Amino acid sequence: MEFAKHLAMFSALGSTPAAAAAPINAQDMLVSSSPAAASTQRGGIDTISLNFAESARVFSVTLYLPDDSEISVYPAESDTDTPAAKGKNFSFRLSKPLTAAGQYKISYLLTSKSFKSLNGFIDFEVKESGDTSTDDAALARGAERTSDE
């Protein structure tokens, strides 16, 4: 009888034990990104944006270039003591826009209340642009992060 009373109280409040917040599925954690997954861009990409369903601690963001080299976007390669970034929305500015045509991949590593560790990937393509050179060292040195807290 006691259980029935509690169930009635939860129902009256518009919530039942079964309706409690469930953990987020891995595929639902990333709400949106720029560049978007499976998108085709026309070059000039100077910012990587990641928007998550819940607050997270981002430990790393890596950009894989068409020539199979990689750039540590966050933390910057020259700043290994950078703490994890916190928030739901992140924006990482590159010092030089991506203009080289080819397939790119973004990898991110985070933790949140739903995940002890989540490594996600975003593939996108850049079509040819006026300048097809990319200075990897300049990109790595100049990555800058902004986020909401």
Score class of each variant (00 low, 15 high):
Q41P: 02
P66D: 06
A100F: 00
L94M: 11
S78P: 00
G87A: 09
D68I: 08
Q103K: 14
R57C: 02
T111F: 00
R42K: 13
S33K: 12
T134K: 00
A100Y: 00
V73D: 02
S117A: 12
I71H: 01
N25R: 13
F121P: 00
T62M: 11
S112P: 06
I122Q: 03
F52P: 00
A137Y: 13
S72W: 01
G120V: 09
A20L: 15
P23R: 11
K96T: 14
K88W: 01
E144N: 11
D148F: 10
D46I: 03
N51C: 04
E70T: 14
F10N: 07
F52L: 12
V31M: 13
G130P: 02
D136K: 15
V126D: 00
I48Q: 05
N51H: 13
A85L: 14
L13V: 10
T111W: 03
E125P: 00
P23L: 05
D131G: 06
E70N: 11
T62Q: 14
E128W: 06
A22R: 14
P97R: 10
Y74E: 02
S112Q: 03
S49P: 04
L98W: 08
F90E: 01
E2I: 14
A19T: 15
S11H: 10
R141V: 03
D81M: 12
Y64I: 12
P97A: 12
L7Y: 10
P17I: 13
A53D: 07
P75F: 08
S55R: 15
G120Y: 06
G142V: 06
V126C: 05
A26T: 07
K127H: 09
I48L: 15
A8Q: 14
S91E: 11
S55E: 14
A22T: 03
T40K: 11
D67Q: 06
Y74W: 12
D67V: 07
N25M: 10
I24Y: 04
Y104R: 10
K88P: 00
Q41E: 15
L98H: 05
A21P: 08
S39K: 12
D46V: 05
E128C: 04
A143F: 07
G142Q: 06
S15T: 13
L110G: 00
P83F: 01
T146M: 06
G44D: 02
A100M: 13
S32T: 13
K86C: 04
L110E: 07
N89S: 15
S55I: 09
L65C: 10
S72L: 08
K86S: 12
L98R: 04
H6C: 11
P35D: 13
I45H: 03
S60P: 00
S147D: 02
F90L: 03
N119G: 06
V73W: 02
T146H: 09
K113C: 01
A20M: 13
A76N: 11
R141F: 07
M1C: 08
K96I: 12
N25P: 00
S39E: 08
L63D: 03
G87D: 09
S60F: 08
K88H: 04
G130Y: 04
K86E: 06
L50V: 09
F92A: 04
S147A: 15
A137M: 10
Y104S: 06
T146G: 09
I48E: 03
Y108C: 04
K88N: 10
D148N: 15
G130I: 06
K127G: 03
A19N: 13
I122R: 09
S91Q: 13
F10D: 06
S91R: 09
S117H: 06
